[in-house]
């Protein structure tokens, strides 16, 4: 049984639209148009333990929705999702105690308190034994070079520093699966490289499964051999990264971003 198994996951959102123009605007106060948006349309895939999988697609394709469903935040309308023998949204508390999640655009550190206090709080929340907590924290601090940052409140950290702390915070309880939703967004090259090196090492050392959502193709290239492409709520490709690049590379020496753009065009995936 694979570690993560999704079968036929469906999710729709209702969007309320207001008609444009002067009079329709007024009418919009009384009548509203509901439109159904199919965020995920029968998405199925499975991931084995210890894999590093890239999950890509244009904006609005349904990547974050998938991650949210897999982390137990959203309940899908239909379909099956079993992760480590559990259904995320039904056994949420049990489930999330064994996964780590990093949202690049949201912070999980406590804004006003020193990073170390945030870590101590996470120790209590995840009920980590003090001895293994100390070992794990020191290990992560060494690997991510956090020594000097622990006493700083999260709000005073730079983005790169904060992201390193976020990653450590997500890994303190030694999760078996790590979901990363655009972890390198807005980071400079040095931070990006440091983050990638760390993820690679962590994956090799502890065998943590990593599912990486990103628009940065260099991240994918550096970390993932397998890649899944989603567009308009459907899974369009699932397989080796090298095969995909070969398939869409029009000419020699083409940039990876160009190849991906070419692929999105080919799959008719531009933004609506």
């Amino acid at each position: 049984m694979p570690q993560i198994q999704l079968t036929g996951i469906q999710k729709r959102f209702t969007v309320y639209e207001r008609p444009e123009g002067k009079w329709p605007l007024l009418r919009g106060a009384f009548i509203r148009h509901a439109r159904q948006v199919q965020a995920l349309d029968s998405v199925s895939f499975s991931v084995e333990e210890g894999e590093m999988v890239g999950y890509i697609g244009p904006n609005g394709a349904g990547k974050s929705t998938t991650v949210k469903i897999m982390s137990g935040i959203l309940t899908p309308d239909a379909g099956k999702c079993v992760i480590m023998g559990r259904v995320p949204w039904r056994q949420r508390v049990d489930h999330v105690s064994r996964i780590g999640v990093v949202f690049g655009q949201r912070s999980q550190l406590w804004w006003d308190v020193p990073v170390n206090d945030s870590f101590d709080l996470l120790r209590d929340i995840y009920d980590i034994r003090p001895a293994s907590y100390a070992v794990r924290r020191d290990e992560l601090c060494a690997a991510l070079d956090l020594g000097g940052l622990l006493k700083t409140p999260a709000r005073q950290l730079s983005l790169g520093q904060r992201m390193r702390c976020e990653l450590a915070a997500a890994l303190l309880h030694s999760p078996r699966i790590l979901f990363l939703d655009e972890p390198t967004i807005g980071l400079d090259s040095v931070s990006k490289l440091a983050l990638r090196a760390f993820l690679k090492e962590e994956n090799q050392k502890s065998g943590v499964t990593v599912l990486l959502t990103t628009h940065d193709m260099d991240d994918i290239q550096a970390l993932c051999r397998r890649v899944m492409v989603i567009g308009r709520g459907r899974l369009l490709y699932d397989g080796g990264l090298a095969v995909m690049l070969e398939c869409y590379a029009a000419r020699e020496g083409q940039d990876i971003d160009e190849i991906i753009a070419e692929m999105y065009r080919d799959m008719e995936l531009g933004e609506e």
Binding site: V93, D94, V96, V101, S107
Partner: peptide, 13 residues
Amino acid sequence: NGDVGVELCRPLD
């Protein structure tokens, strides 16, 4: 702003 999502990633009621 949807940060409820982050809170729900904690193994807590």
